[in-house]
Simulated assay, not measured.
Amino acid sequence: MQSEPTTYQHIRIEHEENLSWIVLARPDRANALSADMLEELSDALERLRFTGGPVLAIRGEGKGFSGGYDITEVGVPKSADPVGDRERLQRNVDRFMAIWDHPKPVIAAVHGYCVAGATQLCVFTDITILAEDARIGEPTVPIGGGYIAPLWAPLVGPKRAKELSFVPGNWIDAETAVRWGWANHMVPVADLQSQVRGLAARIALTPPDVLRVKKLSINRAMDAMGARQVANSVAEMDALLHLSPSVLAVREQVREQGFRSVKEGYHVPPTSDLSQHERHSQRKC
């Protein structure tokens, strides 16, 4: 095992024979993506370009992968500054684009909750493996928009991306995420890390330079279909919506009543119950 010269506060690097893990390590805060954590993630990705194992994998410590952006730091604009807001939001996406552009294959290993900005991170990984308990979802309180679901569209299609986005707090389970094409495989919770290790071992049989070009060529195909253009436009949509009267009203409500109280008012069942009803009807027939 290699030693990691840099000590981080909010993530951890673990080297194994065929892969290096980046572990999101703020379990007491649901691995919320704070400014410091995102800085450490960017630094780790850069350091691991030419060091560590031939494959990278990202997982979360504790009960889930990540609850998304830390709304006390990253998730809200500080003032009515659309230009600064757009730059802040684009910087978040650019951090995840570094996964897309990384020379090594990157696997997301997701268990438990994976919400909002955390789903952006997974979209830009090369392969996503889900534990059976994974729940992939949108923010519950509509204080932004046009920032997350558009990045899903190349994977799941526009209709499913809209379904996910239109309902506050909408989410899908692991089985649905695989069926939709958002993830590659679903495995038992206890087997998640071992399955990722096994996959990494098989990937590592391909020489690193061949892997690099294979990844680059597929990414270029996606770029030709507009994936990168989408990633470079979502920040503008979200910054625009942050200044809309309805969003400003919700933010004021949050300030007055507290986030948890406002969140309860938007709590509705996910739209997956429609598919469950359909499957139940088919079984009866």
Rank of each mutant, 00 (worst) to 15 (best):
W100I: 03
M97H: 09
I143F: 05
E73I: 13
R29M: 13
V93F: 09
F65R: 00
E46T: 06
L130Y: 03
G52D: 06
D191C: 02
M97V: 14
H242L: 09
D238L: 05
A239H: 06
V250D: 04
N219I: 00
V250I: 15
L19R: 15
E138V: 06
I71N: 04
G52R: 06
E87A: 14
R86Y: 04
S233N: 11
H15L: 05
S42K: 12
Q120C: 12
G84N: 05
S66V: 10
Q282T: 15
L205F: 01
L130G: 00
I11Q: 02
K215L: 10
V187L: 07
T271L: 14
H111I: 03
Q195E: 12
V93Q: 09
D81P: 02
N184E: 11
S272L: 06
G145C: 03
P188V: 02
E46P: 00
M186I: 10
A239P: 05
E252P: 02
D101E: 07
I129K: 00
K159S: 13
L155V: 04
G62I: 05
L205P: 00
G157T: 13
D209W: 07
F166H: 10
G112M: 05
F124Q: 01
S261V: 14
G53M: 09
E252H: 11
E73P: 11
A35N: 07
G144N: 04
E132T: 11
E87F: 06
A235R: 03
V196G: 00
G53W: 03
D209T: 11
R220D: 08
P207M: 06
M222K: 14
D81F: 03
E132D: 13
E175P: 00
L199M: 15
A183L: 03
G145L: 01
P27H: 13
E175M: 07
I127C: 09
V76H: 06
A134N: 07
A221F: 12
A35E: 09
D70V: 10
P105E: 08
L155K: 13
V115I: 15
M222R: 15
R49K: 15
Q282P: 02
G137E: 03
A204Y: 01
L205I: 02
Q9A: 13
K214G: 02
I13N: 03
V74H: 02
E163I: 00
H280S: 10
R26T: 08
R59M: 06
A227V: 08
A35H: 07
L240V: 14
R212F: 10
A249M: 05
G198E: 15
E138S: 04
R88V: 13
R160I: 14
M37K: 06
R47I: 11
A118G: 14
H242Q: 12
L211C: 13
A227M: 07
Y69R: 06
V213E: 11
S194Q: 08
G67Y: 04
G68M: 06
A116Y: 01
L199W: 08
A235F: 07
R86G: 05
A131R: 01
I13V: 14
R202K: 12
P54H: 08
M1T: 12
D85M: 06
